[in-house]
Design a protein around this nucleic acid. Structure first.
Length: 263
DNA sequence: GGAGATGTTTCAAG
DNA sequence: GCTTGAAACATCTC
């Protein structure tokens, strides 16, 4: 489920635990989410420490516990929630961080999510993440350069590259291309300079609004967005009423309007 | 029962 | 060496 705004939203779920000490960490060690981190390290590393900071960057989250940090990626079906102090872990609750008054829970049925532990507050992997799409580091130049390098990719696949568009996922990529009126299967290399700049601009607009309405309180993005119609069979383009098409492009199911986006 | 799912990594081919 | 596309991962829902 989670893209940029959903990740921001879920990260705040653990906010009630800020400033509180960890009393116990329960890990379902065999779960696949531990393929990138050792359960024993997480258990020992977090125990007794306070949750001091919550950060997100694209689809990545980082929970700082004093001098240690827990990286968390929600994958496809991950979610964070807060439960009671003695919460009995459900079938898909692979990590439960207990505090005096609550449990911080990471639930993930498909287990495409992942964890990272580091005994420092700001680990190297975090420092190396690409600039946020709403930061100054996400520059037109950077996107233009990158478009040259990935000239052979269909636009849909181009927008899903996390090294350039961190946080953009399937629905956001469709939304951005729909706003630009570009056919998602069009090759990136066929775009003119000003068309790439349109992608840069719309990426920021879609991200800003999504963060505001979904990221803050899981609200609804505007009715005029493709978002509301893209999964429904026979869904219509909110701009011109044309029946949307759905096909796999760039390796993911893609919805687009054959009239205003071509093909 | 079968298809498909808001994601990433890995591997092989070009 | 770089780019690209497909497969794999594991479970649930429609």
């Amino acid at each position: 489920m989670p893209e940029l705004a959903e990740v921001a939203f879920y990260s705040k779920k653990w906010a009630p635990g800020l400033g509180e000490r960890v009393t116990e960490v329960v890990c379902r060690e065999r779960a696949r989410i531990y393929r990138t981190a050792e359960a024993a390290q997480i258990r020992l590393g977090l125990r007794g420490r306070q949750l001091t900071e919550i950060r997100t960057r694209g689809k990545q989250m980082m929970f700082v516990f004093g001098d240690a940090s827990l990286g968390l990626h929600l994958g496809m079906t991950g979610e964070l929630l807060v439960a009671g102090r003695a919460h009995e872990p459900g079938k898909h609750d692979h990590l439960v961080i207990r505090q005096a008054k609550r449990s911080l829970v990471f639930r993930d049925p498909r287990m495409f999510g992942a964890l990272k532990f580091a005994p420092v507050a700001e680990p190297d992997w975090w420092k190396e993440l690409p600039p946020d799409v709403l930061s100054r580091g996400f520059s037109k130049d950077m996107v233009l350069r990158y478009a040259c390098r990935r000239a052979g990719l269909p636009l849909k696949a181009f927008l899903l590259q996390q090294e350039t568009f961190p946080g953009i996922g399937n629905w956001m990529a469709d939304e951005i291309l729909w706003r630009c009126r570009f056919y998602p299967g069009r090759k990136t290399g066929s775009l003119k300079r000003n068309e790439i700049i349109m992608i840069w601009e719309e990426t920021r607009k879609v991200s800003r609004t999504a963060l505001r309405v979904i990221g803050e309180r899981w609200g609804d993005v505007p009715k005029s967005w493709l978002f509301h119609y893209r999964w429904r069979d026979g869904g219509k383009c909110p701009r011109d009423g044309t029946t949307l098409r759905r096909e796999e492009i760039g390796g993911r199911t893609t919805a687009w309007c054959p009239k205003c986006q071509g093909k």
